[in-house]
Amino acid sequence: MRATPTLLVLALAGLAAACGGKPKPEQPAPEPTPAATPAPAAAPDADSIARAREDSIRAAQAAGAERINAVKADLAAMINFDYDQAVIRQADQATLDRKAAILAANPNVKVQISGHADERGSDEYNLALGNRRAGAAKRYLENKGIDASRMDVVSYGEERPLNTGHDEAAYAQNRRDEFQVTAGGDSLVAPQ
């Protein structure tokens, strides 16, 4: 995220340079020194100018796409929970804070939050637990100023494990909230 503006500046600079086929009046006329007259060799032909222009447009587009992909990744980033808990962990607060900033910058975006549980614990209770986990994330985002109507809460309990293993590493991955954009995902902008 932090590298993105730098990339953009570089790209724009490249674009400006490529378009610089105009005279440069502030430059003094070259000295009549043979060694210092590389003008014919340095003068770019029309093809290379066009190529450079395309390259820089591509670079700018790539930088923009990368930035939007980063925004999408932040929106979709999962958060995890302790066993039989629906409390947002300290480490996940930054993840949710980034989502809140993105949602604030994109008022048309709506998300569905789905809560999940690991396979331990009662199958039926896990549906309620997943619901509570999704609700906890929604309340956190509401407290950050996101309108409740933009967030939908569902639960899959233990019915959709991310990792089908039967060890603590798998369980830890499966105790999660997933975030899916359900509207407004086509025109995302990065938060200020």
Binding site: E124, L127, A128, N131, R132, A134, K138
Partner: peptide, 25 residues
């Protein structure tokens, strides 16, 4: 919302169940 764990009353007239929404179950 999410409606789970149904159970009939002994006379079969009532059905108890749990309803989940964002305020809990």
């Amino acid at each position: 919302g999410l409606n789970i764990t149904p159970a009939f009353s002994p006379d079969g007239r009532l059905l108890a169940y749990a309803h989940s929404d964002e305020s809990g179950t």
